[in-house]
Write a protein that binds this DNA or RNA. Sequence first.
RNA 1: GCCGACGUAGCUCAGCGGUAGAGCAGCUGUUUCGUAAACAGCAGGUCACCGGUUCAAAUCCGGUCGUCGGCUCCA
Length: 597
Amino acid sequence: MAAQRYEDSYLYRLRHSAAHLMAQALTELYPGIKLAIGPPIENGFYYDVDSPTPIREEDLPKIEQRMKELAKLDQRILCISADGREAARRTILEETTLGQGEEVAEYKLQLLEAIPEGESITFYDQQRTDRDGVKHRFIDLCRGPHVDSTKEIKHVRLMSVAGAYWRGDVKNKQLTRIYGTAFETKEELEQYLHNLEEAKKRDHRILGKELGLFMFSPRVGTGLTLWLPKGAVLRDTLIEFLRTEQLKRGYLPVVTPHLASIRLYEKSGHIMTYRDKMFPFMEDGERETYVLKPMNCPFHIEIYQSQMRSYRDLPIRYAEFGTVYRYEQSGEVAGILRARGFTQDDAHLFVRPDQLLDEFIGVVNLMKVVLDKLGLQDFRVRLGTKDPASTKYVGHDDNWQAATQAIEQACKSLSLEYEVSPGDAAFYGPKLDLMIKDALGREWQMGTVQVDYNLPERFEIEYIGEDSKPHRPVMIHRAPFGSIERMIGLLTEQYAGAFPFWLSPVQVAVLPIADRHVEKANELLATLRDEHHVRTEVDDRRETLGKKIRESQLHKVPYMLILGDRDLEQGTVGVRSREKGDLGAMKLEEFLALALG
RNA sequence: GCCGACGUAGCUCAGCGGUAGAGCAGCUGUUUCGUAAACAGCAGGUCACCGGUUCAAAUCCGGUCGUCGGCUCCA
């Protein structure tokens, strides 16, 4: 039996009704408030309003209180069909806005206009006169459905306020969005709030600090990461893994500078399309303007173009762990998940049109290997296609079609499930993205594969075909991680800092019990490090064993090797696993077999 | 960038008009210890920064910077 869709569930209706209830409370508390929209969302609901007086977070308990009072009145929620557009308009002016005038009905009237001709128009009506004889009434233009009575809404919590643009367009007025959540039972609400607290502990920014992975400094700048020793090891480990996989697949390493003349990006077209995302330009007297690179592609094209290419040379796959700089808006920066400087595990494949499908399949295969190795299972694949209504795209329609078909075919042959998302293509071509959620449930774009007919055109790159005539190659842009930073952020949250053995910055902590065991501990470290390439640390502080264990445990070190008199006598080590605790004394060889497999 | 919240010792936080406090970390000494925090003492802060109100500001108000939750945007 298929699970019920959230959209069809009672909880969804409950939250929708909670949004209406909040709107009712707001109209009573803030006369003149203009209502916009208030839908249920994944973890709750919101309502967008335009309030004459600012609504702040400290006002939320007061609003929540009013909601509870209104809920208890047992207002029946009824669906009313409007008898035509004009009648609907009158209902909005007279009922929804309580006759406060057309001005207050502004957004609702716009919503009414947006309802297609011929579609039924419905309102939801809730009203009741309380014990003091005060009449409460709220009627909202709404498709529904709702629960039957406001008294069903018992366990609500208003969470936060935020700004949100009317109809999601920056050019429009910014409204106040109030977020809330509602559950059927008190226990579920409490559980949800508790889970939120727990999720915060998995936040990569907190763990990054606790585990000594990375830091930021206001003196360095917003969104510019300082990698600490342990984080740098993690980075290097990830890079080394992918570098090896890429070498197996015929990728060629290249290295390009962080800066380039602005002329490179004029040629690529990025100055036109990407300028507001670039750091301020650098003027070199009157001779040259330099820019910090926001992407690696044009550099790789320059390398491709440095010599004549034959059809026999293709495909050419240039790979680079390239650090790019993008001037993200201050409010968008989010630890290492969204930084202003980040390193892409980038590569550009120059392929003949007849090679496109195979090469695309090769890339998706590599991505599967990467996901598998990293233990990431909870992801969504998104095929970003052209939005037919938009004009931001470049290139011929037949190229777009060919590219989109190649991606779809590749997915089919790999039996990869994906969702088509119109409008999520790059401006130069369709793309396949890997979407993964963070601890707080926000979805991030990770790995990506993109087909590009545009840059080859702009740079007029060619190869000589079998027919001795020049032909235009197709480019594939791809990054299996997306960026090292984002991937480490996500992995940190997925594993709650307890990385698998191969990724752990410190794999083994050697814990001598007393001073007289330190010498042996250092010998053990040398053996593990030099002969077995295990990242090892010795905790030689004069602290109790209990304390050393506690700290290694908090630092999520996979294995602790304890050395005391007994071990020195018997030639063993006391093994403790991060997950399983004390495993007892064993020979070093036994431990190595256990840890290294 | 916009809306809202928050910035107190290295870290986590208390104090919220009468002039700065705890735990952990650090330092010194004692303890040499077998599976998640030994004990004692010491030291550590122009309460993010700038300005205002007040007899008096960490506390109230304004601005700047930074961080966080959203919006828009994105790897």
